[in-house]
Amino acid sequence: MSLIELELALAQVLTDADYLARFLVDKKEALAGFELSPAEIAAITGIDDDRLRGYSNLLLRTRIELGLRAFPRVRKLLGPDFVSRYGAEYARTFPLGPASGQSPVFVEFRSLLTFLEQHASRLETEIPFFGDTLQYDATMFVLGNDPDIANEVHRFERHYRPLLDSDDTANVMPLRSPGTLIRTFTIDILSETDRQTSTASDELSHLLFYKTARDVAVRLTRVNDATKCALELCDGRTPIHQIADGVARQVGLGETVENVRACIAMCQALSARGVIGVRTTWE
């Protein structure tokens, strides 16, 4: 009754390139560590060598393709040679483990992100802005697929209803949605249709990512310095008139009534889009 040993041996043949090489040189020697019956040894040693080699390669390619689903722009930049160039190293660095009780896509996403981060500096020499693009894809994937974030958004929307339309804005304290994240990039990734020929810009782009509980898709907005400043001040404790003051100082304007009204209007727009919520002092 060593069927599980047969399955273990086959799994190792298919997922461990070094073991496969040893197996193909001397099968009986390679199988010595497994407790197999003569029939089971015959079952695995009789498999066609070329098919085993081909399926092992296909498995690795399928595994990496699964992870690359989380990185659509990176995948495009890396091109079809990525698996042949880095696949073996990736498999050695992150060998397949037991079932983890987590989403397989997330498991592969994390491994591949770590691997690509480790190689980012080398890849950056071949692919302009590789690091930025990697962080962009990773952010989008997490915002759109992480149940913890989505649950936070659900709770946020239940508790904090937009109150900015009320006449009494003095007691209003805006706070950012848990699904809101500001990332600063050295280029505007979204506007780049051909990353390979893009050039660096001195201007920073603030891409504001956010999601709402009613929509699976990740949303993103390009924001200016004033909006970025306002969002960073929206902590649920600072009243809106103080946020307006902070924004006015940040962008070098006076604390005029017009500027405060402009800031409130900005917060209203962000609130209407679900980027921020509002709580009041009497909550």
Binding site: L3, I4, L6, E7, L8, L10, A11, Q12, L14, T15, A43, L59, T62, R63, L66, L96, G97, P98, A99, S100, P104
Partner: peptide
């Protein structure tokens, strides 16, 4: 098929004996 053994989750369909 089988897709996993205790030590390895292969993540794909492997033919049976």
């Amino acid at each position: 098929s089988f897709t996993k053994v205790p030590e390895i989750d292969l993540g794909t369909l492997i033919p049976l004996w």
